[in-house]
Amino acid sequence: MTNITEKLELFEVFVRSKRGLDHKHVGSLHAEDHEQALEYARDCYTRRSEGVSIWVVKSADICSSQEDDADCFYDPNDDKPYRHATYYVLPDPVNNM
């Protein structure tokens, strides 16, 4: 059995399928560099759409927070109810705001 070594790096792919929308994470692929990753992303993730925008980022470059460490990193949203529209009671005729 040959020794299989993977020399291709992992890239995350984000696609904006239509103008006005955000880029969405759609998956990942292996490529040698950013240019190749973009080309493959076009073939692998946008076979059914035209005029999209593709971002590729090396997976290793993505920094993320760990959800369960939330305490110090995020506000506890539930102690500031005045941030939410439902906090405010308005007369019926104008309640559609």
């Binding site: 692929l29 292996h30 493959y40 073939d43 692998c44 076979r47």
Partner: peptide, 11 residues
């Protein structure tokens, strides 16, 4: 030679 290339060349 690898999956991504297989897909791309097919196009």
């Amino acid at each position: 030679p690898f999956l991504e290339e297989d897909i791309a060349y097919g196009n």
